[in-house]
Design a protein around this nucleic acid. Structure first.
Length: 478
RNA sequence: GGCCCCAUCGUCUAGAGGUUCAGGACACCACCCUCUCAAGGUGGAGACACGGGUUCGAUUCCCGUUGGGGCUACCA
């Protein structure tokens, strides 16, 4: 199995799915997974793309057995370093009469394209003599594949069965460009063969080019691999291909938004594939044990984030507090709530806070807004509107807070259980519903109406800060 | 335009001719739990694109229509 991205941009979420499926299949079948870089288009080459692709594949845990930085017997794994190999193969085909030099000008080709048909075979029967003359004149040439002119070719797709193509609809495509670099078609066939790829699992935008590839395998006298074409990813509205217009398409953006690689993998896995049972939460280990290409769907898939958000929550809840703390730390540092580097005692406090917010967190990036009041010495004074509930009045709220302040001052053991007991006792004593007392306290202490359990929160914040915040709220009401 | 692929709840999907008044998950709604918010529990609403065949019987097979998508480069 292999994943063969082109370094023309950041790792796309759809490419990541392709990589994942390839990786899973390699694991399942105890085969090898290799990474090959298809950098044969110098004009579209983006230098940062390479590091982004490798970094994010690793982030997902999709390690490659062979490829850049890993090496391997079939290297090099950058196509730009293999141009000699492609040139040799292309020239072999010319010698065998299965391909030919073409000297047509870009202008002529442009006109041809406008006519709606492919290349017309203008240079197909050029004599060797003529070619030499052209070369001596310094003309640039490409090598084109000599397509059989009639008949049909059947492409066997693992999921779709046989697909018939009329050879008349296929033109003499370019194998080797005038700059000496191969086209995708040549490079992919040569490399997949030389690298002993048995299953080509790629996006279904390649179906239309597969007949060319099969013909190339035949021309070289090679056995074609099994072709498995994945359905395309559609925009969330199901209309049109997934593109930047519809939100994030690069994996790095998801990472930056606070998605867990576990969740992204699980989500991508379910986008076109499903396990034999009804499970939705499937870890990589589980998937690697049961992945089978028969269960891949053929219909286009809308890329909707709802399930990813849910899965992210699921995986966040599964994390050990220390683990989640470590993952959330960079986000808190970015928000300026914890220093970088983070001293051990501050980190320990974070770990202590984690259980309070763990089941409320959907994205790691939400950590700051959900926990700021734990880390801050003082919080911005909550507005009276927030402090005074809809069912209460300013004077009642003031009385309640004052009463709470008084009893809390006397609490020596500021544990959640003890605080709860004290405050419930107070509410009963005042003949008030507990919620009526708890809400203004919550707002006074945290500045918000939605928080983790009040008493756990108070314990974590500690008596001095709690009392100070209640006093501050009280003075704000005066 | 030509060639090709695809078509079950809003979304991801189960289903491989009858045992399905079509099952699960996300999202949505209601209720329960409850100090708020979550999480969790229970329940609810929600789909076989359409038209022809084939068949005793079609969501399942065939054809067409419609819709969506891809390819049609010296890009991958």
């Amino acid at each position: 199995m292999r994943f063969a991205p082109s370094p023309t941009g950041y790792l796309h979420i759809g490419s990541a799915r392709t990589a994942l499926y390839n990786w899973l299949m390699a694991k399942k079948e105890k085969g090898l997974f290799l990474l090959r870089i298809e950098d044969t288009d110098r004009s579209r080459y983006v230098p940062e793309a390479m590091t982004d692709i490798m970094e994010n594949l690793r982030w997902l845990g999709l390690d490659w057995d062979e490829g850049p930085e890993a090496g391997g017997p079939a290297g090099p794994y950058y196509q730009s370093e293999r141009v000699e190999i492609y040139r040799r193969h292309a020239e072999d085909l010319v010698v065998q009469g299965k391909a030919y030099y073409c000297f047509c000008s870009p202008e002529r080709l442009e006109e041809l394209r406008r006519s709606g048909y492919g290349y017309d075979g203008h240079c197909r029967e050029l004599s060797a003599e003529r070619c030499r003359e052209y070369f001596e004149e310094g003309k640039e040439a490409v090598i084109r594949f000599k397509m059989p002119r009639e008949g049909k070719i059947t492409v066997r797709d693992y999921l779709r069965g046989e697909i018939l193509f009329d050879l008349q609809t296929l033109d003499d495509f370019v194998l080797l460009k005038s700059d000496g670099f191969p086209t995708y078609h040549l490079a992919v066939v040569v490399d997949d063969h030389l690298m002993a790829i048995t299953h080509v699992l790629r996006g279904d935008e390649w179906i239309a080019s597969t007949p060319r590839h099969i013909l190339l395998y035949k021309a070289f006298g090679w056995e074609p691999p099994v072709f498995i074409h994945l359905p395309v990813l559609l925009a969330p509205d199901g209309k049109g291909k997934l593109s930047k217009r519809h939100g994030s398409t690069s994996l790095r953006e998801y990472r930056e938004q606070g998605y867990l690689p576990e969740a992204v993998n699980n989500f991508l896995l379910l986008l076109g594939w499903h396990p034999p049972d009804d499970r939705e939460v499937v870890t990589m280990e589980e998937a690697a044990a049961v992945f089978s290409p028969e269960r891949i769907n053929t219909a286009p898939v809308a890329f909707s984030l709802e399930k990813l958000n849910w899965l992210n929550g699921v995986y966040i809840r599964r994390l050990a507090p220390e683990d989640l703390a470590a993952r959330v730390l960079p986000f808190l540092q970015k928000d300026g709530l914890l220093p970088d580097p983070c001293p051990p005692e501050r980190f320990a406090y974070l770990v202590r806070i984690i259980p309070l917010v763990q089941e409320r967190l959907r994205l790691l990036s939400e950590i700051g807004e959900q926990t700021a009041y734990f880390f801050q010495e003082e919080i911005p004074a909550p507005s009276p509107e927030l402090l005074v509930g809809k069912k209460s009045s300013a004077s009642e709220t003031r009385d309640l807070l004052a009463a709470a302040l008084k009893v809390l001052e006397g609490v020596a053991d500021f544990s959640a259980a003890n605080v709860e007991e004290t405050l419930r006792g107070l509410a009963a004593e005042l003949g008030k519903k507990p919620g009526l007392l708890f809400m203004p306290l919550r707002v006074a202490i945290t500045g918000r109406t939605a928080t983790p359990g009040l008493f756990e929160t108070m314990e974590a914040i500690g008596k001095p800060r709690v009392l100070r915040r209640i006093r501050a709220a009280l003075s704000g009401l005066a």
